[in-house]
């Protein structure tokens, strides 16, 4: 379960951590193979393979946990997705091939969940959190100090609150007798039971409320790194605000935009508690995104195999996004 080191001359040389920088330079330099680094007389080194093993030892506890509780379930997920495992303990589950996936794609409820997940992700993550986060970060750079602190504090509080509490707060906000309708009433606008008429929009707004702080922090960090001279020069040249945004700011923070979109989307794909608390996926299944659909199939309908097949699809989509994210970060490692 530990990392298996690959012993060998080349590996040993690369593995040399170069206790003195000079040694490292020598072993890295091209040309004829350098003689083995001089060993300090007072501390003989163990053989390379053994040394690598000793050095890798501290990774073991983390690795054991990751393999048993993360890699294990993922592998198990890939297995039971192809079986008809049920909650109500039949003796043996049997291998059913792609049956679960065929069922899924023929299932009206599954297609509904996919569609709602798409709406939820696009509205709350791509449009809502991302745009609002960027707008807040941009405005904060111009605003006066106290306003910045106050607004930052409020927005971040919404983010730090436990998911379930956020769910209750927005449940109260969108309920028929809740705050939103009270405000609309004061403005003489017609109110409605938002959790019943537009449940998916209500939970999307809830997710914007809860998640915008993250984008705001990412974009604040990104905007802070744009050199002042660049924007000032454009300003003196008379470029309008929108043109500066489009031609200067956005291109300069495009890597942060990519990262932020990826992480937001992944986060949004796995939202469960917020929707569960607000609507339980209802009314009917009009706010049932994929995680809630998966839960319902696996536990309320006792079809673990089918629920896991849906989970596997979610995991594959998540992995694809995750790979894109790695590509965006590839220079960092």
């Amino acid at each position: 379960m530990t990392t298996t080191p690959l012993p060998g001359p080349g590996f040993a040389e690369k593995d040399d951590d170069g206790r003195a920088p000079k040694e490292r330079d020598r072993s890295a330099s091209p040309g004829p193979p350098a003689p083995a680094p001089r060993r300090p007389p007072h501390r003989p080194r163990p053989r390379p393979a053994l040394r690598t093993l000793t050095r890798a030892l501290p990774v073991t506890p983390a690795l054991v946990l990751l393999v048993l509780f993360l890699a294990g379930p993922i592998a198990y997920c890939a297995y039971i997705a192809f079986t008809d495992l049920q909650l109500t303990g039949q003796a043996n589950e049997s291998f059913v091939g792609f049956e679960n996936f065929r069922t899924a794609f023929g299932d009206e409820a599954f297609r509904n969940a996919v569609w709602l997940t798409l709406v939820f992700t696009v509205v709350s993550s791509l449009v809502g959190q991302n745009t609002l986060g960027l707008a807040l970060a941009g405005l904060m750079r111009r605003a006066s100090g106290p306003v910045r602190t106050l607004v930052g504090g409020i927005v971040i509080t919404a983010w730090v609150l436990p998911e379930v509490v956020a769910g209750f707060l927005l449940y109260a906000f969108f309920r028929d007798e809740g705050t939103l309708n009270a405000i609309l009433d004061v403005l003489h606008l017609p109110g409605q039971n938002w959790l019943f008429t537009l449940p998916i929009l209500a939970v999307s707004f809830a997710n914007v409320w809860r998640g915008t702080a993250f984008s705001m922090l990412v974009y604040s960090a990104a905007l802070a790194e744009i050199p002042k001279e660049v924007t000032e020069a454009a300003e003196v040249d008379g470029a309008s605000g929108w043109r500066r945004l489009w031609h200067i700011t956005l291109p300069m923070i495009r890597r942060s935009i990519g990262t932020n979109l990826m992480l937001n989307t992944l986060q949004t794909l796995s939202v469960f508690g917020l929707i569960w608390v607000m609507t339980r996926g209802g009314p009917g299944n009009r706010s049932q995104t994929l995680p809630l659909f998966m839960y319902e199939q696996a536990f309320q309908k006792s079809m673990i195999g089918y629920g896991t097949a849906v989970a596997l699809l979610l995991l594959v989509v998540g992995s694809l996004f995750s790979l894109v994210y790695l590509r965006l970060l590839r220079t960092e490692v």
Binding site: T3, P5, L312, L315, L323
Partner: peptide, 27 residues
């Protein structure tokens, strides 16, 4: 320590940071 295993390990770790944990709760 520098090792040729570091990079693949770190990439795997980074990949795992963004996996949707919700999806593996049923298994």
């Amino acid at each position: 320590f520098r090792s040729r295993l570091n990079r693949p390990f770190l990439l795997t770790i980074l990949f795992a940071t963004s996996l949707p944990i919700t999806a593996i709760m049923v298994p």
